[in-house]
Design a protein around this nucleic acid. Structure first.
Lengths: 339, 339
DNA sequence: AGTTGGCACTCGACTTCCATGAGTGCCAAC
DNA sequence: GTTGGCACTCATGGAAGTCGAGTGCCAACT
């Protein structure tokens, strides 16, 4: 009894189940695949696979379906990720290249990824903490209010409106503006806190209140607690895919609304730039136990600025989704490098 | 046979059906409501209501359910919108007041509206074309690239990156910057096109190429074709509400993904600042024929900057949703005025 | 040892049949 | 215009039965 053939049987079961959404029996398996053995032999293999926990029968006298563990083995032993097609590659390119700004890039990426994979897509905005500051702008609005704008090298923009004490000097603001940019431009967001302190130290004697208020605002915008933003799309795919088990769509949608949870999920992507796959119960998020997540980091020059991925039923096309996620992430990284 | 009582019967049918999701019969109606007449009388009224197209029976020997026309009459004759509760009012206030910027305000509004109504919520970003320009910023990025930022008085920010011909003069840029702001600040976005032409006319003889490129970019950012943005949330509510008719959730989700379609839907809100209700087939959008939309314009000082609303099954709590949508829109308008 | 054909067995899916009862329309009486 | 009465309809749900895909096991074969 060869281990390799048992793996082939598992592969065939996964393939059929993903295609038909129905438990697959030994007979139909040998009919649909060139396994070169009889159904009785396949049955023996199935018995072993079941004993080892890779497949189960929903009920006696039914075919087998893969368990999470079965999908896990299937994914770990994937042979040859099908590269995305030429047409898809071109679609990715033309779709992303015509984006006008970061919001637009992210929106388009989500749309693209969900269209290609026909799953729910998630794209995290480039993380501030791993970006550099491109520019800080201070705009006086009148009514003693000041608009603070912080722009990251990824094109991300954060802004705050600030109430100033009456009678502050415009000169002071423009001085502050110059010094802030001198100190902060091209530095990492993570350094902002220390750098603003240095800038503050340079202002001795002058209107301390204004200086501190402005610098505090810059710091707040740059280290915003809600800094991690995520966009999802393609939820209609979820309803389509799970039309036969309507009960499972609600908890997943609910989990998708909790962006904090999603970010944690995406963040669990391994540090390397390899695609990460989490299957069923491997997601310890409530409501996502029947779902799988395929995700990967993206960024210019292969440093992971943030993550993106897809969510779908465990019975998804892992090979296709892995390929699509990887391709979109690569191209997105390139687009961001160009900005 | 009084018309008024027939309306009462319709009201009772709508109330019961919304509560139970089951066809309602004459007997249970008189049991649950103080109609003061017998079930036979109610049956007579029902026969008339059915003849007039306000209610139907899903099958013979079943109770009645309201038709779109029935809901329409119900809504048109709504007596006394229940004001939102004190607690809800406070929730709205605390939730929106702690928002830090426009994105945050919109996100929170969607979350809030979907939580209160337990429906899918949609919020359109303040429309550029109805806003005024607060400030235009030009930032030299190095590599002969220029970042153009246009800020609206609603806090909305649009940006473009622009490639400049080599060897442009920094002086020119700052001159341009000053003149653009002089010309554009506090003007409406709709006027931008004409105003940039005027600015361009002021630069005779100097590097025309740069001037035209920058002004073109400003104009593009200010009249962006994708200017209308919309955010939706609470889709999990849709799955919960329609758990008994899983077939209907997919087309609605699909329609919700088409933001262009949603914008058209929201845009159909009547010009007045009254809440608009569109029921079932009144939405001529594919897939939304089983859904109702409750929407209203919002903005500071009761001018409609944009729209927001909720989407749900036709069997929704119209009175409650109308009240919630109105309350959220009013408060959102106030928040934007404060910015 | 591994593979195969044969065979009895299981049990969900599907059909049929029937009883139940909520709900209706109609009518005569009030 | 309202009401009680009554025959009728038909969806719902349970019981019983058939069907068949799929299984496990075993003896025989290579």
């Amino acid at each position: 009894m060869s281990d390799e053939r048992r793996l082939d049987v598992l592969r065939a079961i996964v393939a059929d189940f993903v295609a038909t959404h129905e438990p697959v029996g030994s007979k139909s398996l040998v009919e649909r695949h060139e396994l070169g053995v009889s159904s009785a032999t396949v049955r023996n293999d199935m018995a072993v696979l079941e004993e080892d926990g890779y497949i189960v029968q929903p009920h006696t006298s039914a075919g087998r379906i893969p368990t999470d563990k079965g999908y896990r083995l299937f994914v770990d032993r994937l042979t040859g990720i099908r590269p995305v097609s030429r047409a898809e590659r071109r679609a990715i390119r033309t779709f992303l290249d015509s984006a006008v700004d970061l919001d637009n890039v992210v929106d388009r990426t989500v749309r693209l990824l969900s269209d290609i994979t026909r799953q729910v897509a998630m794209v995290q905005y480039p993380s501030l903490s791993r970006s550099r500051i491109r520019h800080v702008e201070l705009v006086e609005l009148g009514n003693a209010r000041l608009l603070v704008i912080v722009i990251a090298d990824t094109g991300r923009v954060e802004q705050r409106v600030l109430e100033l004490p009456d009678g502050f000097a415009s000169d002071l603001i423009s001085d502050l503006h110059a010094r802030i940019n001198d100190a902060l431009v091209d530095r990492e967001f993570a350094e902002v806190s220390g750098l603003t302190d240095q800038v503050a130290a340079g202002f001795t004697g002058v209107d301390d209140q204004v200086v501190r208020a402005v610098l505090g605002s810059v710091q707040e915008a740059a280290t915003e607690e809600v800094e991690e933003r995520i966009v999802i799309g393609g939820t209609a795919n979820l309803a389509r895919e799970t039309a036969d088990l309507p009960h499972s769509v609600h908890p997943i949608l609910e989990a998708l609304e909790e962006h904090v949870v999603l970010l944690r999920l995406l963040g669990e992507t391994t540090a390397t730039d390899e695609v990460s796959v989490r299957i069923g119960h491997e997601n310890d998020v409530v409501g996502m136990n029947a779902a799988s997540v395929v995700s990967v980091g993206y960024g210019p020059d292969s440093s992971a600025l943030a993550h993106l991925g897809v969510v779908g039923p465990t019975r998804m096309d892992y090979a296709g989704n892995i390929a699509a996620v990887r391709a979109v992430a690569r191209y997105l990284g390139r687009v961001l490098a160009d900005q």
